[in-house]
Amino acid sequence: MEAVLEVRQVQVTFKTEKGEIAPVENVDFQLGKGETIAIVGESGSGKSVTTLSIMGLLGKAGRVSRGYISLHGRELTGLSAKELNRIRGNDISMIFQEPMSALNPVLTIGHQLSEQIRKHRGLGRKEARAEGEAMLRRVGIARAESIMREYPFALSGGMLQRVMIAMAMSCNPKVLIADEPTTALDVTIQAQILRLMKELKKEFGTSILLITHDMNVVAEMADRVIVMYGGEVVEEADVFQLFDHHRHPYTKGLLECIPQIGSGKGERLAAIPGSVPLPQHMPRGCRFQDRCAHVMDKCREQHPPLKDAGKGHKVRCWLTCEGKEGEENGGTP
């Protein structure tokens, strides 16, 4: 598959009062054309920092301190703010969990939508407005004309997320980054938004990077899944492979801790004990060791590398993956 976005051996560091911390290390993947990759993990796993580094939105204190990120072979790390501005919106767009906080509360939807289209596509005022209205219709907003005149506060959460998607898609981006796009929504509205994202992906051939902590959303949307823990990738696989034959104990934990309708009512949920360690308190060896039921001596001493278990299934675990680093290995452990 043609790689649209490449993230290679990326480490992100932030300056803090107590020295530098690295909330993201060893993140490595590529996103193909028209592909949906889901990045899953708990708060503190580094998934949002990874997307911000792709967007060049790390702020003054943060930087990509190792590795590189490239879009269609063009390196993004190190571009000037002006060059990045052209790429953001045109080539890569992003939608967030809270559409309300991403929109300007004192400007109408129409104003914000057409301004973006004018800026990025160089259209005139009238054409941009017509284009914006068409885009609202495309994302399933029937009263597009009157919604253009509304302010953000007047719209429901689901409607605002549709507006955000219309904005993000209005410049026909190659990559759409969706950071927990449905976490704040009701299940019915979540289903509508997920379906809309699937339709747009098919229609425009957009590649999607979906950030979520919800394995059910992953099951519905993803082609491939990247599981992050403590700032690094711990497992990567095709979505069917991941659900059927996952190997990392953390992935297993994430899958089993979700109560599914109609299953095992009397039983206790398989909660993962404890919580993600802070970047400044990352243990030596495997980062998941303190929460892992299968921890061995080796896990406490040596940091496991990401190994290829065959067919693009990669795992970072001493117990379950004996494959060689970076090499194909079809054998089962």
Binding site: S156, Q192, Q260
Partner: peptide, 26 residues
Amino acid sequence: AALLASNPPGSPHDRRREESVLQGDI
């Protein structure tokens, strides 16, 4: 029934095929 149909599946094998998504807002 509509709420249950909107709930995303527990496995990629159970992805929604027919589009039984509830339309509109409350």
